[in-house]
Simulated scan of single mutants.
Amino acid sequence: MAVSISRDLTVQVLEDINVVKLTDRQQALRAAIQKGEPKSLGVSQVMLGLMVMSYSIPLHLTELTEVVWFGVPWWSGVMFITAGVFAIVLDKHGTMKLLQVCVTVSLAAAAVSVMAVIIYSVDMGKHPSAPCNNISLSQCDDRYYATRLSLGIKSSLLLFTLAQTVVSAVLGFLLYRQRCGFGQYASLDQATPSTPTSSTPLGQD
């Protein structure tokens, strides 16, 4: 903090050069984050999470398999929505602390997506479509149609989860790169005076 004293003994506190540099760096951080458009990717994550959860509802009406028992669409969908909300908030409040949290949540969402993809793949391999014993498909039993519906839904959930894996990985990579570029400015969020102040001359009330 720089201080200057005039001839009439008026003390004036000038702007600190370091404070100005940190403020400029914080603005650059926010501009860099917004350039990566985390809001768009965050909205995509929220939509994919909602779609995964809503598409999984019919699975409870068909053959119950490991996907339903473990609740894969639900905890993966909640994780996708959480990561999307953090990305949307980061677009409005580009702070270093929030950036670090968003990086962690995005990478966690990518890991959860990979885990869900594995479970979907194993489940679909263990529970194939039941064969139709009749010559005419219109006379197949209910189990045939139930397993076909279950496989169709799981295929859709698998595609949504793969898309979520890509979105989370891309967002996590972009934010991590920004974090590495601005990591030395972790104290940007601290409040600092931004305008010069002055006091009365010495010896006066």
Rank of each mutant, 00 (worst) to 15 (best):
T161G: 03
Y144I: 13
S150H: 06
A110N: 07
S136C: 08
L162P: 00
M53G: 05
R177Q: 08
T82C: 00
S138V: 15
Y55W: 12
L50F: 07
T62Y: 07
H93L: 13
Q184K: 10
L99Y: 07
M124F: 03
A163C: 11
E63V: 14
P128E: 04
R148K: 15
G84P: 05
S138N: 14
Q178M: 09
G125H: 11
Y185W: 10
L99F: 05
A116K: 08
L175D: 01
Q139H: 09
L41N: 06
D141S: 14
M115I: 12
I118C: 01
S150K: 11
V112W: 02
I135V: 12
L157K: 10
S168R: 09
A87R: 08
F182R: 11
L159P: 00
H60V: 09
V101I: 15
Y145S: 11
A186V: 10
I135R: 08
Y120K: 13
P58Q: 10
G49N: 05
M96A: 09
V112Y: 10
L162E: 10
A83W: 07
C102Q: 09
S56P: 04
I153N: 04
G71N: 03
V46F: 01
C102L: 03
V166H: 10
V167E: 01
V170L: 07
L50M: 12
L158E: 06
V72I: 15
Q139L: 14
Q139I: 11
E63W: 01
Y145W: 12
V68W: 00
V166R: 09
V112S: 07
